[in-house]
Simulated assay, not measured.
Amino acid sequence: MLDESHKIPQATTKRLPLYYRFLQNFANAGQKRISSQELSEAMKIDSATIRRDFSHLGALGKKGYGYDVQELLAFFRKTLDQDEATNVALIGVGSLGSAFLKYNFHRNHNTKIILAFDTNSPHEGKKISGIDTYHPDLIEEKIKQYGVEVVILTVPSRSAQEVTDRLAQTDIKGILNFTPVRISVPEHIRVQTIDLSVELQTLIYQIKHD
């Protein structure tokens, strides 16, 4: 875990899973050590940014040697709690939600979708892509029963805040919001919003103005 007494910049925290993924690739290729320049070339991130990120984390290499791949991998595994799976629930099994269930993150990450909710599912539940799926009437009950910490929200925009208000009454710690609505939550819940249309428009703008 990161030392909470030392505030890590948000931009750095977003890159942590990427560092872990690329270090796994180098380790799988049998590489023993790596320089920030090699990571830079592989990840397309400026080497100065990488060195600055690592200095925030305290993961410093040796001058003239670079970084020990296995040591860095162990560091990021601990930092990202890779050995502890986080139970995730999905709310809204439409086209996007179905894709999440089919992929499911625990194959490559420390997250695992174990529960889903959809208005077309019966109260007694059914399996969708091997995941227990229930009617949204049971959100509060089942989230507690399954020990869910994080929710992926892929419901229609009109339902986003209503569902969020119900989630606020549970013990979840975070919401990954795929709706375009800026949902309001109490302080104990962290929200990360991914608006696909905004991301696409940003990409198009960057392409045209590059």
Rank of each mutant, 00 (worst) to 15 (best):
202 T>F: 09
3 D>K: 12
11 A>N: 10
15 R>N: 10
179 T>Y: 07
37 Q>W: 07
57 L>W: 08
196 L>I: 13
118 D>S: 08
3 D>L: 06
150 V>Q: 10
161 Q>S: 12
166 R>M: 11
104 N>H: 03
108 N>I: 11
197 S>D: 14
51 R>P: 08
21 R>D: 05
113 I>M: 10
171 D>M: 04
109 H>C: 02
127 K>A: 14
95 S>I: 13
90 L>H: 01
137 D>C: 03
104 N>A: 00
157 S>D: 10
200 L>I: 12
37 Q>G: 04
191 V>A: 06
8 I>F: 06
190 R>L: 09
165 D>C: 01
103 Y>T: 13
141 E>Q: 11
3 D>Q: 12
51 R>N: 15
24 Q>F: 00
29 A>H: 05
152 I>Q: 07
32 K>Y: 06
26 F>D: 09
97 G>Y: 02
107 R>Y: 11
111 T>C: 14
145 Q>R: 07
1 M>K: 08
188 H>G: 01
201 Q>C: 03
11 A>L: 07
33 R>H: 14
80 L>V: 04
122 P>N: 10
89 A>K: 03
57 L>I: 05
146 Y>G: 00
65 Y>N: 08
193 T>R: 15
167 L>S: 12
78 K>G: 09
63 K>A: 08
45 I>T: 12
20 Y>N: 08
68 D>N: 15
180 P>V: 02
40 S>R: 13
183 I>Y: 03
203 L>Y: 13
13 T>P: 00
123 H>W: 00
14 K>N: 10
201 Q>G: 02
83 D>T: 12
192 Q>R: 12
189 I>M: 06
183 I>R: 00
140 E>V: 08
88 V>P: 05
36 S>F: 00
25 N>H: 08
141 E>D: 07
64 G>N: 07
193 T>W: 01
97 G>H: 06
31 Q>F: 02
179 T>F: 04
40 S>K: 13
179 T>P: 07
158 R>Q: 07
4 E>H: 11
85 A>I: 13
96 L>Q: 10
124 E>W: 01
